[in-house]
Design a protein around this nucleic acid. Structure first.
Length: 550
DNA sequence: TTGGAAGGCGCC
DNA sequence: AAAGGGCGCCTTCCAA
């Protein structure tokens, strides 16, 4: 039924492995086998593999054609457990966990290194202190015990399982890659930026726009030097405190239009231009280097290529293989739906129990039909808006959805008072005063923030943390369910961005995949949050090109 | 030469 | 219109 084995790589491509009891204790002799992938592949009856680190092992299994259903990643578990215990920031390696367990000096984590473009994730797996198989087994057994001590042990176990599943998904997505047409990308760059000059490589359009800016000011101004631009506007009689887009938009001066266009195109040129294309696209695929749980709230990050910040205009280059499709699915109004589920606010759950436009429904209930106002109010409540119309609207929101607003207000107060907050499944914010906390809440440079200012910033952070992080909880379960439901198809998960997934599949599987995504979202809602009427609908598009998805 | 801060902007 | 949450990464600027 639930058959669980631990495994670790051994010298020469071999493996050490052992069956485990439910309490984590070894259930037999430690075996030594000559081939890691064969050791796993020949044991299909194993329902969960326990290992130190997924990036260390799983890419090697995938390269040998071995897929696993479930795993338990000891180092992921260590981070989650440390967090839950209010010790986020302590070294997270298995070796560090072992040292803590045996009262030995705890080795620091090795510094994280950014990937160089095109590097496989297995290669930038951090090099850290070795740990014996026996020690790993002891750490694992202790982690089982620590889960039992969590505030909600079942949820904590689910969190570790889903984070581990996320590690499998990440490795599989990096292996598959996001289909990317370098040819389309190049054509797009030439269309937007013009051809490049032979000498400098500078695109023609940028040079032209820079000349127009200079012409408008009547002197040479370099648009990529904010200080230069600021001075030029002041000389022209316009008071500006920065060169931010929203500030420039309010100025009546002929330099503004070419300047704004320059900024947009310059960003594309530097962030997703020809050199990015050369560095990051190989064999028609983009491999962002997904890192599950890379942020304290549980959102993922990517390593090196800006994989979660692909500008909309560049998505034209994401093109399915011939005869294949991209199923692009975006969870609709995810954060307010998650707030409904975690706060159990009756009114908001009723609204979120409908798959239709949530902001419209909220506006009908509390804002006499003004959808824009309703959306601002909801986002303001989730983000901790402190001024402007948002505050006024928050009062209306509180009247109709008191439990929902109280939930985020309580989280904010906990943060201000230096207490911990947790996501629904138990991912926990950094403790107040920890280095992570300090680095995160650092304000503008000039003056050190006062204690009161820091407390308010922490309150806004914890307010958002419980919603954003619980949404990340849901997303992990959704991905796990989706992954399992498409195993028998040719379809491959190829992209994930907070509340959006892309599956690459043959055209005749697309409808089935779209249905599988919706089913995964519904199932994730029930497993993550228990019985609530809240629905988690997707906006889904079946397209050949990502840019056509909306 | 290198590393960090700051200004800015892309994504959610 | 302006202000609030989470990120990565580009540039310039400046100090070590």
């Amino acid at each position: 039924m639930d058959e669980r084995w631990a495994i670790a790589p051994a010298e020469g491509g071999g493996a050490l492995l052992v069956a485990l009891h439910p309490d984590g204790q070894p259930a037999g002799e430690v075996l030594r086998e000559p081939d890691l992938a064969a050791a796993v592949g020949s044991r299909p009856q194993v329902t969960r593999w326990v290992w130190r680190s997924t990036p260390e092992i799983y890419p090697r299994l995938l390269a040998s054609g071995v897929r696993v259903d479930r795993c338990y990643d000891v180092e992921c578990a260590e981070v989650l457990l440390l967090g839950h215990e209010g010790r986020l920031g302590e070294p997270r390696s298995a070796a560090a966990a072992w040292a803590r367990l045996t009262n030995k000096p705890v080795p620091a984590d090795p510094p994280l290194r950014a990937a160089t473009p095109g590097e496989q994730s297995s290669l930038f797996e951090i090099q850290e202190e070795p740990i014996s198989f026996e020690a790993l087994l002891r750490v694992y057994a202790d982690q089982i015990r620590r889960h039992q001590s969590a505030e909600y042990p079942d949820r904590m176990r689910l969190l570790t399982a889903s984070e581990s599943s996320g590690m499998l998904v990440a490795a599989e997505m990096d292996r598959a890659g996001l289909p990317w047409s370098a040819e389309t990308h190049r054509a797009l760059l030439t269309e937007l930026l013009g051809e490049r000059f032979a000498g400098s490589g500078e695109p023609r359009r940028l040079t032209e726009l820079a000349d127009q800016v200079s012409e408008a000011f009547g002197r040479r101004v370099r648009p990529d030097l904010p200080a230069d631009v600021l001075k030029a506007f002041k000389q022209a009689g316009h008071q500006v405190s920065s060169t931010r887009k929203w500030e420039l938009e309010g100025i009546d001066h002929p330099a503004v239009a070419p300047l704004l266009e320059y900024k947009t195109l310059y960003r594309i040129y530097t962030a997703n231009g020809w050199s990015w294309l050369n560095d990051w696209i190989h064999d028609g695929r983009f491999r962002p280097g997904f890192i599950p749980g890379g942020t304290v709230s549980g959102r993922w990050v990517t390593n090196g290529g800006g994989g979660l910040q692909i500008p909309k205009v560049i998505r034209r280059a994401v093109v399915a293989d011939p005869g294949w499709r991209l199923v692009v699915a975006d969870a609709s109004q995810l954060e307010p739906r998650v707030l409904a589920a975690i706060s159990r606010d009756p009114g908001l759950m009723e609204v979120a129990g409908d798959a239709g436009d949530l902001y419209k429904a909220v506006s009908d209930k509390a804002f006499s039909g003004d959808r824009a106002m309703a959306k601002l109010a909801v986002l303001g409540a989730v983000y901790g808006q402190t001024s402007g119309d948002g505050l006024k609207n928050l009062a209306a929101l509180r009247k109709r959805f008191p439990k929902a607003v109280a939930y985020v207000d309580d989280a904010a107060r906990a943060g201000e008072e230096g207490r911990l907050v947790r996501t629904w499944l138990g991912r926990t914010c950094p403790p107040s005063g920890s280095p992570i906390d300090a680095a995160m809440l650092e304000g503008p440079s000039e003056e050190r923030p006062t204690d009161a200012r820091h407390a308010r910033a922490r309150g806004r952070f914890t307010r958002n943390f419980v919603v954003q992080g619980s949404a990340a909880d849901w997303a992990l379960l959704m991905m796990a369910a989706l992954r399992q439901s498409i195993t028998d198809l040719k379809a491959e998960l190829v992209f994930f961005q907070h509340d959006e997934v892309i599956v690459h599949c043959p055209a005749d599987e697309a409808d089935q995949v779209a249905a599988a995504i919706q089913a995964a979202g519904d199932l994730a809602g029930r497993i993550t949050f228990g019985a609530t009427p809240t629905r988690f609908p997707f906006t889904t598009a079946i397209v050949e090109c990502y840019a056509d998805a909306k």
